[in-house]
Write a protein that binds this DNA or RNA. Structure first.
Lengths: 192, 192, 192, 192
DNA sequence: GGCTAAGCGAGACGGTACGTCCTGTCTTTAC
DNA sequence: GTAAAGACAGGACGTACCGTCTCGCTTAGCC
């Protein structure tokens, strides 16, 4: 796979900018993030940032995409769909329920709000795979009789339930997430 | 009932500010909202805004709270909990699924992200009553055997499922919302 | 002699305002003097200041006029005009040459610059009597043959020489002032 | 001769700012001069002003220094010191005695009052050369027997006498200035 | 191996908005 | 009926950043 980035672009500068952005996002939050401080922190001219990223949200999205601690969890397939998805949701809840995870989720949400294109790219990387893997595990469960649309709604209810708790500052626990999974799957006809 | 707002505050200015904020939120979006323009539009000095609202998100929150087109829907009680909540969710989906509703929801979410206190107030006015009324309708359903915690998770899955669809730019339809309600309620033991 | 000030005016407030103005003039200087701080320091409403003084320079002028440490020195008449005016100028130099005196002189000058009417009133109280008393002592000296205009120019050269030294941050000493007096009086025909 | 100003500074902006300042000084006076209006008039960002001038008086001083109609007069040396200095003082009186000259002198004085550093720079450019050239002409006069200190006092009396008349809103005429010069020089031993 | 053009750091520029301070007017309440 | 208190519309302050623009320097990529 070839790199489509223009030649002559300084890899050093690119990485420094993305890392500075992540550091400053964490330190000051999305609202107080300035291009000027990113440039200073990265030891880079402002123009170098403007040369490669059209808008601030685009840079934020790239920076978040550049993080390597946000690899999506994959549900196992042990044959027991309820157990598998409960564990998967539990792991996710633990991650999103932590202070750091919640802050990141809120930031992602706000960044997505700023620009539809950003929203699309973040979805492609984060919520998309999340939905997709859960949907696939669900589809692999023979005992569940449901239309694809119903399975989609079920996945969205599970993920949305967790996201909603984080965004509204409610507690999100491993047990709560597992319980939600049990309710939804039972609703799809699984025996719990 | 006495007014607990500080005495001598100009009601004229207060209302003009909130209305200008709503107009400009609609016209330019949250990102391009400036206090200066609000003041100019409202025919008010900037200081009058800063005197009464500590931060921009606080003003945005108040402005959104001041809107009278966001009255929460109340689920009826016809005896059939599935039908009642499906209708309720359908109405909600219609409201949140519209362009205007979706934009407002994203704005509310972003504003809530900026400051925890704002988040609390918006929750108190919007998501809180939403959750509460759904929870109460659910609790009134004798045929459902579930713990209070399970009912809470169910409500969050339903609302969260809708909110999540809006935030991730998926279609949110009346039918989809009703389907989610059916899945979740069946998961709580309702006969659907 | 009756007081021409309007009846019912609060003497307490009037004095508090003038004294607060002098204190703040001394502490922050003319440039950083604000009506608001004067009102707060004097324990007075702003309106009370605006009711009785039309402009800030007018208040400053009144405040300076209210000071009792600026009584003009009177030259004695011992029969020796050179000695008398030298001593008088020496005393004046000592007063204007001190840090406090120089600061006050600069403030008076700047205040006079702001408004012609203020200038007139300050002149009437400060530089006027200064010129007048010196002029009279000079006129009383029989040995000096000079036209009234020449005497005026002489007085202005003496006072102006001192003021100029202060305004241009040169040293102003008792001896220097006396020397200037000797030069000017000899120029008028006095034997020195 | 190299330019010691920082490199890359825009000469266009610098000149536009100084000229706008002079225009607005003339139109509104020192008291009503705002940085904001200077920036707007000069077609410049406010920051560009604040980048190069620390305070408003510093800018005013530079603007006044930038004027080319304030070149100091040089006294001629025809051999007759009284005539030379009388003419010189007469020219100065005409300049300072005009409405425009008096306004400028008052402005200079007020600006100098605001900040000692400003005072120093204005002195260096205006009163310094004035004093210096007069002092030199005086020193070149062989018929005058006087110490250097006496000559300094004499010069200050002449200049101070004129400045004082302007500041205290007295008439300053060509004839009056010449008369003052005659008095002072006779006081130094010149034959008049 | 030398030439040359792009990319780079630096940072000044014309601007916009910030949040603060103060102006001079006004209204309310207390004495 | 004057005073203290303080909210109000307005406007300037000095700061922080925006996104654009030059300036020299460095360096990669082609002759």
């Amino acid at each position: 796979m070839t790199d489509s980035r223009p030649r002559r672009r300084s890899e050093r500068a690119r990485v420094a900018i993305l890392e500075a952005t992540n550091v400053l996002l964490h330190d000051h939050g999305l609202e107080n993030l300035s291009i000027e401080e990113i440039a200073a922190t990265a030891g880079v001219g402002k123009q170098t940032i403007y040369r490669w990223w059209p808008t601030r949200p685009a840079l934020v999205a790239d920076a978040l995409l550049h993080r390597d601690d946000l690899a999506p969890l994959l549900p196992k397939d042990t044959g027991d769909v309820v157990k598998d998805l409960s564990r998967w949701a539990g792991g996710l809840a633990e991650s999103l329920g932590s202070d750091r995870g919640a802050a990141t989720l809120r930031m992602l949400t706000a960044a997505a709000t700023e620009h539809p294109e950003i929203s699309r790219r973040l979805h492609e990387r984060f919520s998309g795979p999340l939905q997709e893997t859960a949907y696939e595990r669900l589809s692999a469960a023979k005992e569940i009789k449901a239309t694809p649309a119903q399975r989609r709604h079920a996945v969205d209810a599970i993920i949305g339930g967790m996201v909603y708790k984080v965004l509204s500052h409610q507690k999100l626990t491993r047990a709560g997430a597992a319980e939600t999974v049990r309710i939804v799957l039972r609703g799809l006809g699984a025996s719990v």
